[in-house]
Design a protein around this nucleic acid. Structure first.
Lengths: 253, 253
DNA sequence: TCGAATTTGTGCGTATGTATC
DNA sequence: GGATACATACGCACAAATTCG
């Protein structure tokens, strides 16, 4: 029985991995072109491409069209702690996360008031499809570079006519959902987060400056009032290569 | 300037999506062969393959080698709630999750005592590389079908010589980490979970009965004692198609 | 029981598009 | 604008799995 050997593209992938591990190419360096590498090992360009795609999907390489294939820079990932202690009076959770890793946090946002709720959002907020919402699109930055995206929805009939109707406007701008709701007498008692793995869309990849099909965690988060009513829900896109997500769970017995 | 049209494989993908949505093929049905579909639309087999691969990666189709391509059955996903209230005296968290969705929970496990800790595990447990651990590999089942994998590590010098040294043996078998540690006077105060998105390995896919590169959430979980010492760490593989993960976070202000 | 036909899955080449320098 | 390099689309050949006569 003949012992089968691994396919060529896996052998090339191992070779590339080895040469990177041995620091023949340093982070940021450009690899030789696929034609060159292929000739060196006596395989077609396509075999090299498959090998590189594998390492790209694992985050070890980075392909730049028209420029070359590069050894990925190992950037320190942003640590996002999600726990009960996260919500502090007066502060923003995101800024606290950034401060903890010594980076300068900030964000850009764009709010559209009175957007009809799509079906899924309506279900999550417990309202009818098409009822009006305040939608805010966020782009969170660390040292000026985008590291996280979020789209937030709040029922308009909850905040409409109050000072906190605009999450990023008015006297309570940027204070966070919990603090803003407290201003209008709504006590937020708990959050539910549902993380799902998927790949970044082309648009998300472009906004975040990451590879096209990089892995992201898509978190559906909903804040509930102490009356059990959903008061806000958001779709948060966290790229695995830029952020690590940490849940701290207290144990009560 | 000529208006560019989408590539053929995306057009075929849309066609297949439409015919599935219109219930021309029901969940579980087999699609016509690639050759047939290709002929019908006047494209090559490979275009159909690319279109099907796209829908497979999105979970809408399922390919079975030698058999055919099938419309995916929409099975109800297992909801796994991860919160402070999860740990109950005397019960197992997993069985509670299963009961909540009306399914019969269970698991199989295999324990190896005195396994030297690999570097990453040692770092997570705060012990030296190569120090001995008790390693337990779990396969969690819902109605007899595997829905989750887990590999758990406990430092041997913590439980060695006690009745709870084997997680799934002795009088406290299957009681869970928190309850077992309590038996030897160790109070577990909190857990830290770090979810990362990735694709299933071939082995995981085979064990879980899912498609080869399906999305999974890989959770690194560590339990800490009230002294701040890590007492257990585990790598948990949760397939997105079978389970949904829910974190409940209380808000304290 | 076994082998042939069918079908999906994999590996790899070529042509073309597109971004960068 | 040309040269270079990666990205995409598509086709062919073959392997592996399944089914069926």
């Amino acid at each position: 029985m003949p012992e089968q050997q691994p396919p060529p593209y896996l052998r090339i992938a191992d070779e590339l991995r080895r040469r990177i591990a041995e620091r023949e190419w340093e982070p940021g360096d450009r690899l030789p072109s696929r034609a060159q590498i292929g000739q060196e090992y006596g395989v077609g360009e396509n075999v090299v491409r498959r090998a590189q795609e594998l390492l790209i999907s694992q985050g070890a390489l980075e392909g730049r069209a028209g420029s070359g294939t590069f050894v990925a820079e190992l950037r320190q990932r942003v640590r996002m702690v999600r726990s009960a202690a996260r919500e502090q009076p007066g502060g923003s959770p995101f800024r606290a996360d950034m401060k903890a890793v010594g980076r300068n946090g900030g964000w850009e946002s764009r709010t559209d008031a009175k957007v009809p709720a799509p079906a899924e959002i309506a279900a999550r907020l417990g309202i009818g499809e098409g009822e009006l919402c305040v939608r805010t699109v966020y782009e969170f930055l660390a040292d000026g570079r985008p590291v996280q995206l979020s789209t937030s929805w709040e029922p308009y009939d909850l905040t409409g006519g109050t000072l906190v109707v605009l999450p990023e406007g008015g006297p309570h701008a940027g204070a966070g959902v919990v603090n803003r709701m407290a201003e209008i007498g709504v006590t937020v008692s708990h959050a539910v987060e549902q993380p799902e793995p998927r790949q970044a869309t082309a648009e998300e990849a472009s906004l975040l400056g990451i590879q096209k099909a990089a892995f992201v965690t898509h978190i559906r988060r909903t804040y509930y009032s102490d009356q059990g009513r959903p008061v806000e829900t958001a779709d948060i896109v966290v790229p695995a290569g830029l952020c690590e997500i940490v849940y701290e769970i207290p144990i009560s017995r």
